[in-house]
Amino acid sequence: MIKPYPLQFQPEFKERVWGGRALEQFGLNLPEGHIGEGWMIADHPNGTTQVMNGELAGLGLDQIREQLGKEWLGSKGFSEVNGRFPLLIKLLDCNDDLSVQVHPKDDYDGLPKGELGKTEMWYVLDAKPGSKIIYGLNEGVTRESLQLALTNGTVTDSLREVPVEAGDTFYIPSGTVHALCAGVLVAEIQQNSDTTYRIYDYNRPGLDGKPRDLHIEDSLNVIAYSGSGASMMKTDAVVPGEWLELAKSPYFIVEKGVVSGNWSLTTTPASFAILVICEGQGALKWEGGSLDYTAGQCFLLPANLLHYELEGNATVLRTYLP
């Protein structure tokens, strides 16, 4: 019987027209090209990460799910729609503006069979001076006015721009129009979905030199014009050794913590926990083992790990299921 231990995965990297090389600052070995996404913990047909450490090294997260089940992932640790791991954890390097986009809810008729909608959140790891994002629509924008703006080429006038800096957090429920913009490095926690509807893509060519597909009708159908419940917050007021709740949804709870010295923590039988190291370094310890950690690393802590400790000086995101 394998004793539970923190799992670290080999990321799946995705080339994107808006990507760059900034993820190399975390010591990640990137393939050539414009790398926009590192899928750090993933169990999806479009990318499944493999364990790098310990007895389970070489197994995909899908195999972990199938072989070790609820004991390791928790009683809540599976999607009710497709049985997969319920979350997808990414690091995003926005060397250029992303497309303006929106995600559907789980019950949208246009979803492919077995695919989920997407609610997500962003934590800004780094942002160049003057960086911004698109976050929602301007007041008074309706389906009709947005459709007209798309037709006459004035859609950017309908979009709400928000300045960003490191430490900012954005909760993005399905139905929220959004786009990361150039100069931003982000940790993203989301439903395990790869469904994105592009509203506008700056009339630029994709990696193949051709315009990328837009999804105007689907986008207009799923936008929450009267408000999606999106919220943003500054996170400077974190007390070492205490968790600050950043996002709470039906799909995940995300908290920010500051490690200063030694912090004793625990998982629960209901849910795994995911740690994203935002900055700093130290050691992750549990009964029978220890792992050094540094910024940019992500760890899946099994539900049956129970007691563990974080040592060092670091900023950490912790995610688990509600």
Results as ranks from 00 to 15, higher is better:
residue 57 A to T: 03
residue 60 G to A: 01
residue 34 H to Q: 13
residue 123 Y to F: 13
residue 239 V to I: 14
residue 307 H to P: 01
residue 9 F to K: 02
residue 253 I to H: 11
residue 166 A to Y: 03
residue 12 E to A: 11
residue 80 E to C: 08
residue 174 S to Y: 15
residue 293 Y to W: 11
residue 197 Y to L: 11
residue 240 P to W: 01
residue 122 W to H: 15
residue 58 G to F: 09
residue 204 R to L: 12
residue 245 E to A: 11
residue 279 E to I: 01
residue 26 F to I: 03
residue 232 M to Y: 15
residue 197 Y to D: 02
residue 242 E to P: 08
residue 140 G to C: 13
residue 215 H to Q: 01
residue 270 A to W: 07
residue 183 G to E: 02
residue 11 P to H: 08
residue 113 K to H: 09
residue 12 E to G: 05
residue 239 V to D: 06
residue 315 T to Y: 12
residue 108 Y to E: 02
residue 244 L to R: 12
residue 319 T to D: 06
residue 95 N to S: 12
residue 25 Q to P: 11
residue 301 L to Y: 00
residue 145 S to L: 11
residue 100 V to S: 13
residue 223 I to Q: 15
residue 303 A to Q: 05
residue 196 T to I: 11
residue 310 L to Q: 06
residue 201 D to M: 15
residue 245 E to D: 04
residue 170 F to N: 10
residue 268 T to E: 09
residue 102 V to W: 08
residue 303 A to E: 01
residue 273 A to D: 05
residue 93 D to I: 08
residue 147 Q to K: 13
residue 143 R to D: 11
residue 226 S to K: 13
residue 107 D to E: 11
residue 234 K to H: 11
residue 297 Q to G: 08
residue 296 G to F: 05
residue 133 I to C: 05
residue 180 L to R: 14
residue 159 L to Y: 02
residue 201 D to K: 14
residue 286 W to V: 10
residue 75 S to V: 14
residue 129 P to K: 06
residue 21 R to K: 12
residue 94 C to D: 12
residue 25 Q to F: 07
residue 57 A to K: 06
residue 47 G to V: 02
residue 177 V to F: 08
residue 27 G to V: 04
residue 211 P to E: 01
residue 187 A to F: 15
residue 283 A to C: 10
residue 171 Y to Q: 13
residue 124 V to G: 02
residue 165 E to L: 14
residue 275 L to Q: 03
residue 7 L to P: 06
residue 68 L to R: 00
residue 8 Q to D: 00
residue 111 L to Q: 05
residue 145 S to I: 05
residue 188 E to V: 07
residue 158 S to Q: 15
residue 74 G to W: 00
residue 162 V to S: 09
residue 148 L to W: 12
residue 80 E to D: 09
residue 291 L to Q: 13
residue 195 T to Q: 10
residue 56 L to I: 08
residue 283 A to K: 12
residue 24 E to T: 04
residue 156 T to R: 14
residue 79 S to T: 01
residue 7 L to Q: 06
residue 28 L to S: 07
residue 32 E to L: 14
residue 36 G to V: 04
residue 306 L to F: 15
residue 220 L to C: 06
residue 241 G to S: 08
residue 185 L to S: 10
residue 146 L to G: 03
residue 146 L to F: 08
residue 167 G to R: 12
residue 140 G to Q: 09
residue 56 L to D: 03
residue 126 D to C: 09
residue 301 L to D: 00
residue 88 L to Q: 00
residue 44 H to C: 10
residue 218 D to V: 09
residue 255 E to Q: 13
residue 167 G to C: 14
residue 265 L to N: 00
residue 20 G to W: 10
residue 309 E to I: 10
residue 183 G to L: 00
residue 132 K to F: 09
residue 145 S to R: 04
residue 232 M to K: 15
residue 280 G to L: 09
residue 151 T to S: 15
residue 227 G to C: 06
residue 247 A to V: 03
residue 317 L to K: 09
residue 2 I to P: 12
residue 206 G to W: 06
residue 105 K to S: 12
residue 257 G to P: 04
residue 199 I to S: 06
residue 309 E to G: 07
residue 60 G to I: 02
residue 143 R to H: 05
residue 72 W to I: 00
residue 100 V to Q: 07
residue 223 I to W: 14
residue 257 G to R: 05
residue 9 F to Y: 09
residue 289 G to N: 01
residue 214 L to H: 00
residue 157 D to W: 05
residue 71 E to N: 10
residue 276 V to T: 15
residue 179 A to H: 04
residue 127 A to Y: 07
